[in-house]
Amino acid sequence: MSKKGVCHAGFVSHHGSPSCSVPASSGASRPVAAGLRDASRAVHLGAAGVLLLYVYGPADLALALRPWLQLAVVPVVSLTGLLLWKQARIRRLLTVARRRGQRPPTTSQSLPER
């Protein structure tokens, strides 16, 4: 008999502990992070395809692709690669920063009245 739990985002765990892996309801949409990851992966793979054309394509094509590679493709591959690699840490940092920004100031942090 398997235990089921529901995590904070409304996802069901089939292993007893809440894990955000399976939507709780059948009509639930995918989390935004999953869509962002899919989009980043598609852009990363598309840019990698352009790099493959540059390396293994004809010399004429390589000369035409060089400015695009320098200005767009290499920076995009670098940024999307970092995003895919460190997505959990980036999301955690943004969540912490957002929570800190929404907290009301404490009495010790408020400015003294004049």
Rank of each mutant, 00 (worst) to 15 (best):
H15A: 11
S17R: 14
S19H: 07
S19Y: 03
C20V: 04
C20P: 00
S21C: 13
S21Y: 04
A24P: 00
S25G: 13
S26P: 10
S29L: 09
S29P: 09
S29G: 14
S29E: 13
R30W: 01
V32G: 05
A33I: 09
A33P: 01
A34G: 00
G35R: 11
G35C: 12
L36W: 02
R37P: 00
D38R: 12
D38W: 04
A39P: 01
S40V: 04
R41D: 05
R41Y: 10
A42P: 04
A42E: 06
A42R: 12
H44C: 06
H44Y: 11
L45C: 10
A47R: 08
A48D: 12
G49H: 03
V50F: 05
V50C: 06
L53G: 05
L53F: 04
Y54P: 00
Y54C: 02
Y54H: 11
Y54A: 06
V55T: 14
G57A: 05
G57D: 05
P58C: 08
A59N: 03
A59H: 04
D60L: 14
L61P: 00
A62C: 09
A62T: 03
A64Y: 04
A64N: 01
A64W: 00
R66S: 14
R66P: 01
P67I: 12
W68E: 04
L69F: 09
L69S: 02
L69H: 03
L69M: 14
L71M: 04
A72Q: 07
A72I: 10
A72S: 07
V73G: 01
P75V: 00
L79W: 06
G81Y: 04
G81E: 01
G81K: 02
G81H: 04
L82V: 11
L83Y: 08
Q87T: 00
Q87N: 07
Q87W: 09
A88I: 10
A88W: 00
A88G: 08
R89N: 06
R91K: 08
R92T: 05
L93S: 05
L94E: 07
T95R: 15
V96N: 08
A97Q: 14
A97V: 12
R98I: 09
R99V: 12
R99F: 10
R100I: 15
G101E: 04
R103D: 09
R103E: 15
P104L: 15
P104E: 15
